[in-house]
Amino acid sequence: MHSKWLVLSINLFLLAALAVCVVWSMCVGKYPITPLESLQILYANVFGLAAPTDQMAEKVVMGLRLPRILAAVVIGAALSMSGATYQGIFKNPLVSPDFLGVSSGACIGAAIAILMSLSGTGIQIFAFCGGLLAVTITVAIPRLLKSDSNIMLVLSGIIVGGLMGSLLGLLKYIADPETQLASIVYWQMGSLSYVNLPTLGSVMPAIIVSTIIILSMSWWIDVISLGERDAQTLGVNVRRTRNIAILCSTLLTASAVCVAGTIGWLGLVIPHFARMLVGPENTRLLPAAALVGAIFLLLVDTAARTIGSSEMPLSILTGIIGAPFFAWLLYRRRMKLH
């Protein structure tokens, strides 16, 4: 299927593509800066030299574009890994952070924290708890109905997603329209326009720790994806391993929501795309999915901030690209749903 060298070269290619995209994204935007100037500014700042051009250009490159690019890369990678992990541990290629209700749960958690006038860490903790609660309910419903089918888990996700949607509506209804509503809507829509380095930095520890844990258990996610019984006969403590994986991927999703709000489709579609590139084995899939997700969100966000006179919410673009792609995947692979 895929030899080690092929996978390695695909990953190197993705890494190079990401680097190209980062540089390209650095150079485009509404503020007129030539690519050379952008790179000079970046170079000067990285090596602590005096910037060669005007101050505003420096602020645009270092204060606006760089944080956004970093955030798009980190969040794209986090959501894709989160989606791939959920798909593995639930042995279900139809699930994703948004389809399991995790994103909307995290969004609700964040909204409650906003209503309680919490900030920073408080919002993060609430978002994480909201996401965890949502995924717990989603997983519990098929168990209660004693059904193990993939479709049941998806239906359960729709139930939880719908419930969370209504709860969010309720929170918006009781929110202060002037101060709180706008920030709740901002979370809901998904945007990177006000990302700054401190916000991104505050979620980085959670993202890095979760990523390390998920990557180091990626081979075990393969074992679990064979099914609970198979994994147990292979000596895996399925419940514990799965719970660790759920915690980490929920933490990844919640961190992404904290920075950028809910961004749909990414966590579902990118793992599938990466699987087409490097095969289904999670040891290979997770790094590739992270890279593809980073590139994808970076391209989408760059488009969102350069096309049109005002910024487009990210979920619009990810949906326009993601939904048809998923339909094509279903057609192409004629995925077994049961």
Partner: peptide
């Protein structure tokens, strides 16, 4: 335009006004 309801930061940087006036509740 330099944004609708919320500032489009880069477009605003391009215009580089002396002052930006906005609703006080949108501290972001």
């Amino acid at each position: 335009s330099v944004g609708k309801g919320q500032a489009d930061l880069e477009a605003l940087a391009k215009v580089k006004p002396d002052v930006f006036i906005h609703k006080a509740t949108d501290t972001k």
